[in-house]
Amino acid sequence: MEPISFLNIPTSPSIDKVGVEERVARFQTRSIKNESKRQGLKMVLSMIDLTTLEGKDTPGKVKQMCYKAQHLHDLHPGLPTVAAVCVYPSMVAVARKELKNASVKIASVSTVFPAGQAPLEVKITDTKFAVDAGADEIDMVISRGKFLSGEYNFVFDEIAAIKEACGKARLKVILETGELATLDNVRKASDIAIYAGADFIKTSTGKIQPAATMQVTYTMLMAIRDYFDETGIMIGMKPAGGISTSKLALHNLVMVKEILGDAWLNNHWFRFGASSLANDVLMQIMKTETGVYQSSDYFTID
């Protein structure tokens, strides 16, 4: 069998953006009420990668976030923890110490996040550093400049190399869709990432707008669907950036359910990269429990 390389992956289908917008609008008209809403909101919480990716991050900030990850709102028992915390490589050790063997995973961005403008050796070193420090998951960025200049082979090989460097850690490949400009590019980049070995594909770094629009996420989910239909292999999806409300998060779940099915509706296969989403979801959960609209003053902001 020929080794997989960019040259022998299937041609990506073209995407009509207006058609995608219409399809997405249909997901947005789904009405999620009552028990579905309660169940959905808890699912959202459990899928969050609680994230801090600032130049000004300190061990103190990361520690606080790790606590929040396990204690979203202790006033309300029965809530899940988030799926993971997401930090820079330099903070992985701090998070590992804080979380110990807790079920909350540690994700680390790598490959010289967010721009990725460094040689491959540096990126591999960056990745290995994070893994060695205890990261369960690696969120790498692709070389968008190379992609846009048509060097798809380069992008493909780079992802494959990072995948190798990850060892047992799961690899999330960030396409930074806001820089790819078209949905055709989003689809092509998704296919490259998946075939090169991504365990997850992820929309954005959170540093570029627009980030995880539903149109982009839809396009990436269709790539995952097609790959599954071709190979029987599941790939995870992580929209990141821009999903800050419960409503939008639920619409994302609707999309996952209707495109990929219930098998993807858990945090092994679907994540939200978000920092402020958790509290909005908590407020919504309290609203559904109590019937009273909530204030952010009552929800902690670690």
Partner: peptide, 13 residues
């Protein structure tokens, strides 16, 4: 026929 990007370059996709 659909028109891509109606609403201008600033609209999000």
């Amino acid at each position: 026929h659909p028109i891509e990007n109606i609403g201008g370059a600033t609209s999000s996709y």
